[in-house]
């Protein structure tokens, strides 16, 4: 084997990764430029708000409920080591609003929506529906990507707000039924402790995660390779990329918002 081969492969992979980053960036810039130029496809935007937002509510709500409950149990058990069991309401609230609400909602929407967008647009690509759009004087990015990007970016903060509320309710349920907290005191501690920016930062994260989810779904879908295998790869790629980017963006935003 040529000793330089691994190095060549590494170089090729690095170049491919850089090219992909460049292509995604150009795609995102193209979508953003179409966002502010007519025509605007309001009907498609409304449909996507329903798909991304409304239909994601059950999965996001269930995830948040169990996450909030588990968080309360963990904080109680951990806090017991240094007699700090009483901080359960405050830590559940801050944990859900700042981190777990946006991240769990983002990951669940990545699984549900990025896959769905990539599969739908990938199928449209391989069945020439995207070419057909172009021949019908309709820009595919404007018609397909922009409504999805806008809908996901606007709907995700709402989903995060719902996740925050249901997650805190999950903590309250476990706290009052399993851990012996007084209901009124639990809620008072939650509301007294929580600050507006705790919630606001989570909503901003939600908007960023929504943009990432739709961007990855659209990009992978519209660049799908031929055949069922190509669509499958695009779908998998969209979910993996969206999930990793959400976690990376979460770290960057947390550093930006909360580092001393």
């Amino acid at each position: 084997m040529n000793p330089a081969l691994p190095l060549a492969r590494l170089g090729r992979a690095t170049l491919d990764a850089l090219a992909a980053i460049g292509q995604v960036t150009l795609f995102a810039l193209s979508a953003l430029s179409h966002l502010v130029r007519p025509p605007f496809y309001l009907r498609e935007f409304g449909q996507q708000v329903m798909q991304v937002g409304w239909f994601s509510l059950p999965v996001v709500g269930m995830t948040a409920l169990f996450t909030g409950g588990a968080l309360a149990l963990q904080i109680y058990a951990g806090g017991a080591r240094f007699n700090a069991e009483a901080v359960v309401p405050q830590i559940v609230a801050i944990g859900m609003a700042r981190e777990l609400g946006p991240v769990m909602a983002g990951l669940m929407v990545a699984a549900r929506v990025a896959s769905s967008i990539a599969a739908e647009l990938g199928t449209m690509k391989v069945t020439e529906q995207i070419d057909a759009l172009t021949t019908l004087s309709t820009h595919p990015v404007k018609y397909l990507a922009v409504p999805r990007l806008l809908a996901a970016t606007l709907a995700m903060p709402v989903l995060v707000a719902v996740a925050d509320a249901i997650g805190i309710m999950g903590g309250w349920l476990v706290g009052t039924t399993r851990l012996g907290f007084n209901s009124a005191a639990y809620l008072k501690n939650t509301t007294d402790f929580l600050q507006a920016w705790d919630i606001g930062s989570g909503l901003v994260k939600g908007a960023v995660f929504g943009f990432i989810v739709a961007l990855m779904g659209c990009w992978f879908g519209m660049n799908s390779a031929r055949g069922a295998q190509g669509v499958g790869r695009a779908t998998k790629g969209a979910v993996v990329a969206a999930s990793v980017l959400i976690l990376a963006a979460n770290y960057v935003l947390t550093e930006l918002f909360f580092s001393a």
Binding site: T123, M124, E128, Q129, A132, T135, L136, S137
Partner: peptide, 26 residues
């Protein structure tokens, strides 16, 4: 592009739209 019409090999009809909206898409 408004000067052109095209019939694609597989039809390339939009699955999410009823037939009349496919025809009247433009």
């Amino acid at each position: 592009l408004a000067r052109f019409g095209m019939l694609f090999q597989g039809g390339a009809l939009f699955d999410s739209l009823p037939v009349w909206q496919n025809v009247a898409f433009r």
